[in-house]
Design a binder for these strands. Sequence first.
DNA 1: CGGTAGACCGTCCACTCTGGACGGTCAAGT
DNA 2: ACTTGACCGTCCAGAGTGGACGGTCTACCG
Lengths: 167, 167
Amino acid sequence: MRLTPVSYIILGLVRHLGEATPYALKAAAAESVGNLWTVQHAQLYTEPEKLAAAGMLTEEREDAGRRRRTYRITDAGREALDAWLHAPPEGTGETRDPGLLKLFFGADPAQLAPAEVERHERKLAQYEATMAAFGATMPQGPRLALEAGIVHQHTWLAYWRALAGAR
Amino acid sequence: MRLTPVSYIILGLVRHLGEATPYALKAAAAESVGNLWTVQHAQLYTEPEKLAAAGMLTEEREDAGRRRRTYRITDAGREALDAWLHAPPEGTGETRDPGLLKLFFGADPAQLAPAEVERHERKLAQYEATMAAFGATMPQGPRLALEAGIVHQHTWLAYWRALAGAR
DNA sequence: CGGTAGACCGTCCACTCTGGACGGTCAAGT
DNA sequence: ACTTGACCGTCCAGAGTGGACGGTCTACCG
């Protein structure tokens, strides 16, 4: 079985949570790693199933009502995750920004900028609120990632503000 | 027919080039919009076909040898592209960075940082070389997008350098 | 002048991801 | 008893992905 980034996200979240249902994973991803790597909710149901089949997670299922599946990481899963963490990252990062794409093809910067400024202001405020509330108690990894998010939002803000101001 | 970002990328490139074969689109995308939005080469063959069927491009085909298809934009295509350019961007931008993902899940920053620094240095050098060579003659859109790429590479560099220096 | 290496170019396919529709379950409050 | 809204899981058509594969053309070599 081929492990994708999403596989490792799931392994990482399950390891951190101890045990988790897909819905719990959704909640956990939403405000943390979801800002970093989009995970479709449908994947949170299909992917753990595959990981369980591969022996990296154990699956336990309610046999009535919502028939929730609860996952826990196995030693094999822990090993795979650690191996991935120690290997050099494969591939380059990519940025996909619909606003920037329009700008590339000639959209009017002055028309685009205000909305983009607002969007990034909101995002930045959200990140900084998280940092203020949990920064001190967060594990190092998530905190560093959050810091990366913050500095990038600052960069975006400066960029779009300059475009809003010009002309 | 539903138009995706890739559709507009193709329309935009064809409009700019005047006429283009899929292979020409590949070359055109590689060093410009490809840095902004990844386009799979296979899409450059399938997508124009759909756009031609929808009346947004005309298709002309060699009937011997490589059987290249040459595309040109139609008025309908131009209209669709302009409408898209004037509409507010839908959806938020997203960043996907394998290195940052590993950092999030606890990879050692000091081990990750040097390679990331080098990667972003290379990318930055490439962008700046492009800017130095063509900056003065580039259309505004691509130049602004390139500037965005440059400031972000600076942000990444500062970020990873700090992590390389710490501890 | 035939041959061939390497660039140039197009097609295909299995697989994954995406986005959203749809529908069911449960707790709390009329 | 009934409704409302949060909670939760499944499905599916369409889009994107990554790479294999194979054919065409040019330039240069023997």
